[in-house]
Simulated assay, not measured.
Amino acid sequence: MTTAADEIAARWLRRYHPADADAVRLVCFPHAGGSASFYHPVSARFAPSAEVISLQYPGRQDRRKEPCVADLGTLADLITEQLLALDDRPTVFFGHSMGAALAFETAWRLEQKDAGPREILASGRRAPSTTRAEEVHLRDDDGIVAEMKRLNGTAAGVLGDEEILRMALPALRGDYRAIETYSCPADRRVRCDITVLTGDADPLTTVAEAQRWQDHTSGAYRLRSYEGGHFFLVQHLAAVQAEIARALTPAS
């Protein structure tokens, strides 16, 4: 029998492919305006040896009628609640852009319950306590579209389809509000390892800002830089997947 808790979990946690009973878990955190389906290729690549869970935030796709969660801490609390309900198994987090900060905050909360991941792969995001004055969420619709084009994060076909674009704008605005108002204490650290993936021409993250992730872990820290901008991971999918494969492989 499907319970109310099962129905709520199904809204948050998407599994596109079956996994082996003893599979390691990979939890994927989308970028601002992004959806769980962004990680479908990752699920296809690593299942069934990994249980790939893609998060679906409220306010988009089949959850578009739900209000966006415009506070990153609140969103991390809600995700933490869902992940705590899962069975215990080795887990890796992957998050891009806003998703990287959200993965960090979720990992920190889970570690308070002794249920944290063994590694975070933080992609396309400066260190949590490194701030900039950003107000994209305060722009009009045209201003948000201009930012999307600058980052090349959305296909040109979507940008040219007014109906689809209008459906996406509330989620974009809500997510930008969440990440642009996010504040992290400088001394907040996780115990798990952190691997940072960054584009060398990312307008939102300099290499120096990416390096400051090492201040937020007492575990191992690694930095990998790739040619490209904010969505370098699309261009370097194979290399990024190789990093995920390394993280999912138990240390000998």
Rank of each mutant, 00 (worst) to 15 (best):
T3K: 05
A4L: 12
W12D: 09
Y16A: 14
P18I: 08
A19E: 02
A19G: 07
V24L: 04
R25A: 02
R25K: 05
L26K: 00
L26Q: 05
V27N: 03
V27H: 10
F29V: 05
P30V: 12
H31A: 09
A32G: 14
A36Y: 05
F38L: 13
F38D: 04
Y39Q: 11
S43L: 04
A44C: 01
P48W: 10
P48A: 06
A50C: 07
V52S: 00
V52K: 01
Q56H: 09
Q56T: 05
R63Q: 13
R63D: 07
R64P: 02
C68D: 13
A70Q: 08
L75R: 04
A76C: 04
A76R: 02
A76H: 06
E81F: 00
L84Y: 10
D87P: 15
D88G: 00
R89Q: 14
F93M: 08
G95M: 11
H96L: 13
S97Q: 09
S97N: 11
A100Y: 11
A100T: 06
A101N: 15
L102N: 08
L102K: 08
A103R: 06
E105V: 00
A107T: 01
A107K: 07
R109Y: 09
L110N: 12
L110C: 11
G116I: 01
G116N: 01
P117V: 03
L121G: 03
A122T: 11
S123H: 04
S123T: 10
G124R: 00
G124V: 11
T131Y: 14
R132W: 03
V136Y: 06
H137K: 04
D141P: 09
I144P: 10
A146T: 14
M148R: 01
R150T: 12
L151N: 06
G153K: 06
G157S: 14
E162D: 15
I164P: 06
L165R: 07
M167A: 15
M167G: 05
M167W: 06
A171W: 01
Y176I: 01
Y176H: 13
R177W: 04
R177L: 10
A178P: 06
Y182T: 06
C184Q: 09
A186E: 15
R188M: 13
V190W: 03
I194E: 02
V196W: 10
G199Y: 01
D200H: 01
T206E: 12
Q211D: 14
Q214V: 14
L223W: 02
L223M: 11
R224A: 14
Y226G: 08
F231W: 10
F232W: 00
H236S: 11
L237I: 00
A238E: 13
A245C: 01
A245P: 03
R246M: 12
T249P: 04
S252V: 12
S252R: 13
